[in-house]
């Protein structure tokens, strides 16, 4: 295979040039909006109107970031083309961190222990139960979101983190399925040796099985965190109060409330960048892992 790749690599042809050109275009279209966020957020919103095509920031300033972080006075904000609308971004980041990390921790932990029960323990009804839980994969959110809203409302959990987290944090059919498959493939010798040596099931789970499954557990944690950090729809339904709303919602409100006639694009892009930054950092640190895990989870 290695020699084949090398031989192909040496061959130049029109086809390959076109192919590289295509990939180049795809990459540019993919990455350009990220650059445009950066470029706009470092611009002066008034100056943008005069020179909208500039590739570099227009009238370089950190004013937009100062605006969205609430560091600028309203006079300063207006002077740089900011609207009256502001966004208390630090507070919303905190909400997002709470929402995304607690729901990720819950979903990964609860899925792991369930997967252990489905892969290692012997009990009557195991396969039937597993089959029933997997039915959830067939039900799209569109059917459940209205009744779930009513349920959360009846439980008195509107505008609480519990109401946001419970429906996503307790159960994920995909995660259980995925971890069960992995655990079934793990060699059992060490676990059995530990059991024979008198270790309890729980201890074996935490000290042998879970560490052995740390790869997929970590993968699922990253994917869940991305999903929850980016979640918009469910928090939109069950929160109306800024005290618990995550950053995605705040950003959407900020976008929708900016004046139609002359939006504060620099401010909006600064807020957008702040909202996307944790994901971009995650990408820089775990990029390879994320790429591989998408291929992996996708094939199933």
């Amino acid at each position: 295979m290695a020699t084949a790749t090398r031989r192909r690599r040496r061959k130049f042809s029109i086809g390959r040039t076109v192919a590289w050109g295509y990939i180049g275009i795809v990459l540019i279209v993919t990455v350009f909006p990220f650059y445009w966020i950066l470029r706009t957020s470092l611009s002066n919103n008034f100056a943008l109107i005069a020179d909208p095509a500039s590739i570099l920031p227009v009238g370089f300033t950190l004013g937009a970031f100062r605006r969205v972080l609430g560091l600028a006075t309203s006079a300063e904000a207006v002077a740089e083309g900011g609207s009256g609308a502001s966004i208390e971004i630090g507070h919303f980041i905190l909400n997002s961190v709470i929402y995304a990390s607690i729901s990720t921790a819950c979903i990964v932990f609860f899925s792991s222990i369930a997967a252990y029960a489905f892969s290692r323990l012997q009990w009557r009804g195991r396969e039937l139960m597993f089959g029933i839980l997997l039915c959830a994969l067939m039900v799209p959110p569109v059917l459940t979101f209205l009744p779930n809203f009513v349920l959360v409302k009846d439980l008195g959990l509107l505008n609480t983190f519990a109401g946001m987290i419970l429906p996503v944090g307790l159960f994920s059919a995909f995660n259980i399925f995925f971890l069960r498959q992995f655990m079934l493939g793990l060699p059992q010798e060490t676990e059995e040796a530990a059991l024979i040596d008198g270790a309890g099931r729980i201890r074996v789970f935490f000290q042998v099985t879970l560490p052995a499954a740390s790869g997929p557990v970590f993968t699922l944690s990253i994917l869940s965190f991305i999903t929850q950090w980016n979640d918009y729809f469910w928090p939109l339904l069950v929160t109306s109060d800024d005290s618990v709303r995550p950053l995605t919602l705040a950003l959407a409100v900020f976008k929708q409330s900016s004046p139609q006639a002359q939006p504060d694009w620099a401010g909006l892009m600064a807020a957008t960048l702040v909202a996307a930054l944790p994901m971009l950092l995650l990408f820089v640190v775990f990029g390879r892992r994320i790429v591989n895990s998408i291929g992996f989870t996708g094939i199933k």
Partner: peptide, 29 residues
């Protein structure tokens, strides 16, 4: 011995989540 009891304890959170936020809302919907 004792697997069944432990298993039900371990799947309890997932089962509650499934019943409360998938099965029940599906039929209620």
């Amino acid at each position: 011995r004792g697997d069944a009891r432990l298993a039900w304890i371990l799947i309890l959170p997932a089962l509650v989540g499934f019943l409360a936020f998938f099965a029940y809302p599906t039929f209620r919907g």
